[in-house]
């Protein structure tokens, strides 16, 4: 059921535009917040090499956030409105992204990144069929890097699960994060329009099924168990992020994130790099 190709940003109907915006906020906020969380590991990684690798991933995700926020700028928004002056409860990222790390809980970092990267991979694959040309332009760039992220997370999971204590920690992280991981597939208010207009033709509910199969099979192979498929609906965390509900961790992260911006009393966010459309 191929949908009609949507027009340029300025030519969208109100319905189309609202659906595009909802999807872009979801994509951009996920990348931005998870990346910022990954940077918690800079200078804290288990080895210098691990430290450098997670910093790379954080920067890739920040780069993706930049690509998606940039598409929102097509509608006339500035970076300040999109990030720095937005209220905490206006962010639409899944609450998986915002969870703080317990000191030293590298298993959490690895499991989270695995859950996130598989979901992102599926989402990006679905977006390859998008009816909105501006999103289609950006997909290739995102896809190339996600492959490396998934491999990184899988390698670490394999290494940790060769060890009894490592496996125990991975299992604990899977158990703790699962309810939040499921929020990645919780719909925004515009989900039906997003699918019907073909902006992302595959519904999130279907992506969740694929995600469950992929991650479940891989973790099972490592001796790590995941919840039963039937239990998933009841397991989803109460705060999904997609509707603006967040955990306390987000408010703390948000306060720190915006601290300097507020302190400087700024009205603009300094750009240092070329606009993605000009690269």
């Amino acid at each position: 059921m191929a949908s009609a190709r949507l027009g340029a940003p300025g030519d969208l109907s109100e319905r189309e535009r609202e659906a595009v915006e909802a999807l872009l906020y979801q994509l951009a906020d996920d990348e931005f917040v998870v990346a910022d969380r990954y940077t918690d590991w800079q200078c804290q990684g288990p080895t210098l090499e691990a430290d450098i690798a997670i910093a790379n991933i954080a920067q890739d995700e920040l780069g993706h956030a930049r690509l998606w926020y940039d598409l929102l700028q097509d509608f006339g928004y500035e970076e300040t409105e999109l990030i720095w002056e937005r209220e905490a409860e206006e962010f639409r990222h899944a609450t998986l992204c915002e969870q703080s790390f317990e000191s030293g809980d590298w298993a959490d970092a690895v499991v989270r990144s695995y859950f996130y990267d598989v979901a992102e991979f599926l989402q990006v694959e679905a977006l390859a069929e998008t009816s909105y040309p501006r999103i289609a332009d950006r997909i290739e760039k995102v896809n190339g890097e996600e492959h490396y992220h998934r491999e990184h997370a899988q390698n670490w999971l394999e290494r940790l699960c060769e060890d009894a204590e490592g496996t125990r920690r991975v299992q604990a992280a899977v158990d703790d994060l699962y309810p939040y991981a499921l929020t990645l597939f919780e719909p925004t208010a515009k989900e039906d329009d997003i699918v019907e207009l073909g902006i992302r033709p595959t519904p999130l509910a279907q992506l969740r099924e694929e995600w469950y199969d992929l991650t479940g099979a891989f973790l099972d192979g490592l001796g790590v168990s995941v919840p039963d498929r039937e239990a998933l609906d009841d397991l989803v965390a109460e705060e999904t992020g997609r509707d603006g509900s967040h955990t306390d961790d987000w408010q703390r992260q948000y306060n720190e994130l915006t601290y300097t911006y507020r302190m400087l009393d700024r009205t603009e966010a300094r750009r240092l790099m070329a606009d993605p459309d000009e690269v």
């Binding site: 210098l48 910093a55 300097t260 966010a269």
Partner: peptide, 25 residues
């Protein structure tokens, strides 16, 4: 890295901290 007041500055500070760990290595 977290407190940087723009997306580009955040990227730059993160890269910088990463470079320094790399120099240490």
């Amino acid at each position: 890295i977290r407190q940087a007041p723009s997306l580009d500055r955040k990227l730059a500070v993160s890269a910088q901290v990463q470079d320094e760990i790399g120099h240490g290595q």
